[in-house]
């Protein structure tokens, strides 16, 4: 069942310049959601901007869902100006969740890609590798480390936070033949991760981003070409077994 409801923003925090955390009261979505699923958020009460923005569900707590987003353009900028108590129209939960893990879970996030992995960690535990660019990401990194208590390994490209390296370096370091890897980040990162780890771990799943209009499989706006034919990211994904997407 997919709902369209008016959530209420109960908590808002700016984790670092341009990155926000929201906790939104949205009972029907919170009770049904699984890790990997997302919501389409209406960013304005008017028709401009017109399309809803896809955001991963970064966790649930009782009747609330957690969202984590960075300011990219007009929509997320408007969203960042909403306040506690404001109503937020949400469509969800959308898309497929990560399947039940069959190996030791290793969660690999690049930057904002950490959002769905936080929900995965809430449900299944496992080690989280978070890779960021530089020291400007300290706010998010600190917040993730505090929320996950321990099982986090941080990497930054310039070495200013955690180890020097990328999320991919972290994934190579922490993966074993018994690992199942769940990742989220830019498509290029996911493909590189797949090429680096294929055959060395039990499975590799990734959450993929595409532009969306309906979010429910109606408009074919989010279709992606794969070796196995066209796939709609909003209903066939956003979580894909990367084998299906990368292997010819």
């Amino acid at each position: 069942m997919i709902f369209e409801i008016d959530g209420v923003i109960k908590e808002k925090a700016e984790l670092q310049d341009g990155i926000f955390y929201l906790s939104v009261e949205a009972p029907s979505i919170a009770y049904l959601a699984g890790p990997g699923q997302f919501v389409l958020v209406r960013v304005s009460p008017s028709f401009d901007p017109f399309l809803r923005r896809p955001l991963s569900i970064a966790g649930t707590k009782d009747d609330r869902i957690k969202l984590l987003f960075s300011i990219v353009g007009r929509g997320t900028s408007l969203l960042s100006r909403m306040r506690e108590g404001d109503v937020l129209s949400l469509r969800g939960p959308l898309g497929k969740s990560f399947p039940h893990p069959e190996g030791d879970l290793l969660l690999v996030g690049g930057g904002m890609g950490v959002a769905p992995l936080l929900f995965a960690h809430q449900v299944y535990g496992g080690r989280l590798v978070l890779g960021v660019k530089d020291g400007s990401w300290k706010g998010l990194c600190d917040w993730v480390r505090d929320s996950l208590k321990g099982e986090v390994s941080l990497f930054s490209e310039d070495g200013s936070i955690g180890e020097k390296g990328t999320a991919l370096d972290g994934a190579l370091y922490y993966s074993y033949p018994s690992s199942e890897v769940w990742a989220c980040g830019p498509k290029e990162m996911l493909f590189a991760l797949y090429r680096a780890l294929k055959g060395k771990v039990k499975g590799i799943f990734g959450s993929i981003e595409e532009r969306m209009a309906c979010g429910i499989g109606g408009c074919y706006g989010c279709s992606m070409e794969t070796p196995r034919g066209m796939r709609r990211v909003c209903v066939d994904g956003p979580v894909f077994d990367l084998k299906e997407v990368c292997e010819i």
């Binding site: 028709f47 401009d48 901007p49 017109f50 399309l51 532009r211 969306m212 209009a213 408009c219 074919y220 706006g221 989010c222 279709s223 066209m230």
Partner: peptide, 16 residues
Amino acid sequence: RVWETHSGLLNSIGLE
């Protein structure tokens, strides 16, 4: 395939 415009959108789905 979809691009937001002022109060609307452009689409080029191509009849998938």
